[in-house]
């Protein structure tokens, strides 16, 4: 394929897939960060939890 041997296809194809995955991951991070902040803002308005969690820390109890 494209004048490359099977081994070369595996190598370069694999590198290409990895690069695509990294780029997609970077894009996902940005997108999810934005949407996550948006949701956090909405939840903060709705429940006002953000500051509370800091006060109470990791509250654990057995259900």
């Amino acid at each position: 394929m494209f004048g490359l041997s099977g081994s070369e296809c595996l190598l370069y194809g694999g590198i290409a897939v990895m690069a695509a995955a990294v780029l997609a991951a970077a894009a996902s991070i940005v997108v999810f960060r934005i949407t996550g902040k948006k949701i956090a803002r909405v939840l903060e308005e709705e429940y006002g939890i953000g500051t509370l969690r800091g006060r109470y820390g990791q509250v654990k109890c057995r259900r």
């Binding site: 194809g13 694999g14 990895m18 995955a21």
Partner: peptide, 8 residues
Amino acid sequence: GGMSAFAG
């Protein structure tokens, strides 16, 4: 991709 590259 990594596995493919490693295999190649």
